[in-house]
Design a protein around this nucleic acid. Structure first.
Lengths: 380, 380
DNA sequence: CATTACGTTGAATCTGGGA
DNA sequence: GTCCCAGATTCAACGTAAT
């Protein structure tokens, strides 16, 4: 188990990416225009995440406009689906290219879709160099049944999580996700109800947006893959689920939305959203973000004496601690990790978990416990 | 509830598609060559289903160790190596085009893949004119964990079910699936364990094939979307899961496989497989494939007299039966389904379940019961 | 013989900070 | 950019051995 610790904006962000002056960004506001045009107004590498819920109904020609307002394709009653796929692909290429440009090098992209469009979106983003990290299945606990009994009940939607490249060092709060999932690794299939009840926004008694996404979905995504203070852009903002959750989780957001009714609904909704208290935002952090403790510090501070014998759990191997914090085994010297790997003939080893010491009572205890004690005693 | 009835090859197949002489097909055998070459040797429109488990193009990096230091046995076979996406796409286009050609007009295609390849496969098959009916999520109950804690556990694979066109009259045994799923509609996410235990084929103590699929997966697919006697072709036969399940379910199969070791293992395995007894094959069938009973037959045979009054369950609407089996309501005439839809102002209605008649005892009973009685009394 | 303990394994794009 | 090396990281099912 790790130690509770506040999330801090990862320091590498400050040093590794081109510095973007957040003051010049339209943070926490909606750009009331076409998303491609909107993104073009932003500088390169300025956002930490893009979350996109693009249109997928190929017959809704209105959703396929170019930045200049012209129609991508004449979608009339005689529409040919091949022409339509081409038009949809072009639209997808355009908004993805802009999203890619404004993403920081270590930022990630999330897209949600159904079988109508997700294969085209996925192939396109791979073509553009995005590196898929996971595909995530949103399993709806209460999907609409297939009334005609002609197919399987369409009970899920698919999300793609992708980095800008295979080398990118993306944000992923593994430990938070594991905690959220009752101490088991979070899987790629998430059970979340569809958006309804009080959460579902209404206008004159009817739903304000046909495909409003549940906040729980965005909550998990933002918690897992961004840090407080990060900037999340949503090119198809709709009624602003992304903005509402971002505000709750103390992330900045930028929305793109042409429809003025949606904009109005979203603004009112986000205005009402309450940011979580900072203490509620504390999450389980990976030990990676704990201060490092050198094994030698433990020796130096008397947690273990030089000359003490360490063994593995089953007492198959024994090694001696030296004053500088190195171990000796079979006339070979090295770190706890190196010698641990050596005795097992393994390529690598976490010495903290491998080596045990004997207490005065004769009990074997893993040396990682000493490190935890040291950390507790030396907390800031 | 429907009636238990034997599956029969759907009659339309015999009349609608170009007749293929099954004697000329290499039924229930493996074509030991490249799948594209193999499919080219077959005539047009000769198979009812193609099930394909193509290489995933995994693009794995270096070795991967578990936390305990042991090595993960990766898929490093030559058949999964492609130079780039373009090469993989070309390969996909070629085998899909042949699969499309040999499929009967009402036949369907199933493909399985992971996020590495499924988006490319999905987009390609849409480009070729296939009409996606569902994407199905195979949720693994026991996936391999993400050992490094770097992503969400990849706990599923994706299948695509597609018809040759949007007009195709594909086979789907809705009722069998609903029965299989405890009287709930079968959803698009299926929980099935990975293939292990006795089912996992071994050679000299190690797995015979790195990616053997569970029979439960094929069982559900073949049961849902083929009829006994249908022909299923698998272009990437491997160790023959498709063949083994097809034999069990009394379907014909054709496999394509280049690797002679896989061929040998598959042949032995299928040889051992026992076809299910015909009585075990009886499953709940869709009302559509039951012998149709015209409502008029019931009138004709005295199950209901002309002039009788029908109502809905709550006696909100009343209609009169005419001698030809049509109903009258508000001076409007039509079938039980049409008038049922009309009175509710609904787009459609299953009249068999909507309309009730009154017994001599004054009890309301759904008219579907009369149909069931008629069917029982008139069984062959 | 029953139960527990331990070892093995599965389509995996699987580390990251500092010099 | 490369290199070095500390050190973080697993779930369910199945098979076999030990108790």
């Amino acid at each position: 188990m790790g130690v509770m610790e506040k999330i801090a904006v990862k320091p590498k962000t400050a040093t590794k990416v081109a510095k973007v002056d957040k003051k010049t960004l339209p943070l926490d506001s909606i750009l009331k225009m076409d998303c491609i045009e909107a993104m073009r107004s932003l500088p390169d590498a300025c956002v930490d995440m893009v979350f996109a819920d693009p249109p997928y109904n190929l017959q809704l020609g209105g959703d396929l406009q170019r930045p200049d307002g012209s129609q991508v394709d004449a979608v009339d009653d005689d529409w040919d689906k091949f022409d339509n796929f081409a038009a949809y692909d072009k639209f997808t290429q355009e908004w993805l290219a802009e999203a890619r440009r404004i993403l920081k090098p270590d930022g990630t992209l999330w897209v949600i879709g159904s079988y109508h469009n997700i294969f085209r979106v996925g192939a396109t983003l791979q073509d553009q160099g995005f590196w898929i990290l996971n595909d995530i299945i949103w399993r709806k606990s209460n999907p609409m049944p297939n009334f005609k009994g002609t197919r399987f009940t369409n009970a899920h939607e698919t999300l793609i999580w992708a980095a800008k490249s295979d080398k990118a060092r993306y944000t992923f709060h593994y430990r938070s996700m594991k905690t959220l999932n009752d101490e088991l690794q979070m899987r790629s299939d998430w059970v979340i109800p569809i958006c309804g009840g009080k959460e579902r926004l209404k206008l004159n008694g009817t739903k304000a947006h046909p495909t409003q996404k549940p906040e729980a979905l965005l909550y998990r995504i933002l918690l897992a893959c961004t840090n407080p203070g990060d900037v999340v852009l949503d090119p198809f903002f709709g009624t602003g689920t992304t903005g509402a959750v971002a505000k709750r989780l103390q992330r900045h957001w930028i929305g793109c939305e042409r429809d003025s009714t949606y904009c109005k609904v979203a603004e009112e909704r986000i205005e009402m959203a309450l940011p979580l208290d900072e203490s509620s935002l504390e999450t389980m952090q990976s030990p990676k973000s704990q201060p490092r403790v050198a094994f030698g510090q433990l020796v130096e501070n008397g947690y273990l004496r030089a000359g003490a014998q360490l063994t593995d759990k089953k007492r198959r191997f024994g090694a001696i601690v030296r004053a500088d914090g190195s171990l000796v085994w079979n006339n070979k010297y090295g770190s706890i990790h190196k010698i641990g790997a050596l005795v097992q003939n393994a390529p690598s080893c976490n010495g903290w978990m491998f080596w045990y010491y004997q207490t005065r009572e004769g009990e074997l205890k893993v040396i990682d416990e000493l490190r935890q004690n040291y950390l507790l005693a030396n907390e800031p």
